[in-house]
C-alpha cells in the first residue's frame, strides 16, 4: 500500500513537471498532466512486486 501511495504521488509530481515542460501551462492542463501521471504511477505500482 505504501508503495502504491509513493508511486501515485511520484506519478502526479512527474506528470505535472512533464506537462509544464511541454508548454501546457494552464491550471486545467497541469491538472490533466497530473492525472496522466497518476494513471502511470498507479498502473506501474500494480505491475510491480510490492
Amino acid at each position: 500500500m505504501l508503495g502504491m501511495l509513493t508511486f501515485a504521488v511520484g506519478g502526479v509530481l512527474s506528470g505535472v513537471m512533464i506537462a509544464w515542460s511541454m508548454d501546457f501551462k494552464t491550471a486545467r492542463e497541469l491538472i490533466q498532466g497530473g492525472l496522466g501521471g497518476l494513471t502511470v504511477g498507479v498502473l506501474m505500482a500494480l505491475l510491480l512486486p510490492m
Binding site: 512527474s14 512533464i18 492542463e29 498532466g33 492525472l35 501521471g37
Partner: peptide, 20 residues
Amino acid sequence: SPLGLAGTFVVLINFPMITS
C-alpha cells in the same frame, strides 16, 4: 477525455516504462 492532451502525452511518454 478527462486526461486531455497533456495527460495523454504524459502516459505516452511513460509507455515504455509501463510495458518494460
